[in-house]
Each structure stands twice: as structure tokens, then as C-alpha cells.
């Protein structure tokens, strides 16, 4: 089980209706690939974030499938369309069954 998993996101506090807002996300996670061995020669089991989603007011912005080739501390940058004030929900799904969620409100004028 990965320790110290902390998600963080950057979303502007406000935007104009219909504006494209740039979103950045980063989650601290080792993204253990399952390809490495420990000092005793045993394979270190795969343990990664395998899915990341971003929704705004219940509608999908992006839904990403992640494989072990995504770097340690997975980082994503993308653009969302906002037509109204509301809440972004970011969700990361861990191989170990953990689900990490982060929410950000945005005021749209």
C-alpha cells in the first residue's frame, strides 16, 4: 500500500462563462511499475494509480487510464469548459483499492 498519497490540484477560483480553464493535477504516488526487483531479487509488486477522472457538476471533463509507464507522482494538465459555477471533483483510483478524491469550487460570472 502506497503511503503519503496526497493529491493536489490547481484550478482558478473564478472564470467567465464558456471559458476554457487550465487545470493541473499532481498526486504523490510511487507508481511502482511491477518491473523492478528489491535487493533480495524479489519482484516488487505493481502498485499504481490506474485511473484518474475529472468531473464538473457531474459531467465528465476527462477520464484517463494509467499504466505503469506513467511517472512517479502522476501529473496531468488539461482544459475544462465551465458554463456555470460549480464544483470540480477529481478522483484517483489506486491498484490497492484506495480512492483519493479532491474537490475545487469555481465561481463563474
Amino acid at each position: 500500500m502506497a503511503e503519503n498519497v496526497t493529491p493536489r490540484v490547481r484550478v482558478p477560483d473564478s472564470a467567465s462563462a464558456g471559458e476554457a480553464v487550465l487545470i493541473k493535477t499532481l498526486i504523490s504516488h510511487p507508481m511502482e511499475s511491477g518491473q523492478r526487483k528489491d535487493s533480495q531479487g524479489n519482484v516488487i509488486p505493481r502498485s499504481i494509480i490506474n485511473r484518474f477522472t475529472c468531473e464538473f457538476n457531474g459531467e465528465t471533463v476527462i477520464d484517463a487510464t494509467l499504466e505503469p509507464a506513467i511517472s512517479t507522482n502522476p501529473y496531468f494538465e488539461f482544459e475544462a469548459l465551465v458554463n456555470e459555477s460549480g464544483t470540480f471533483v477529481f478522483t484517483w483510483y489506486d491498484d490497492d483499492g484506495s480512492v483519493y478524491e479532491e474537490r475545487k469550487d469555481i465561481t463563474v460570472s
Binding site: V21, V61, I62, E67, F78, E79, V82
Partner: peptide
């Protein structure tokens, strides 16, 4: 990885 873009994606762009 695979990115699927929903109706609220302002562009079909992603960086990682």
C-alpha cells in the same frame, strides 16, 4: 495510458 474526453473538455488536449 488513454485519455477519454467528456463533454466538458474545453480541448482534446492532455499533458503528462
Amino acid at each position: 495510458g488513454t485519455f477519454r474526453f467528456g463533454p466538458l473538455a474545453a480541448s482534446q488536449m492532455a499533458s503528462t
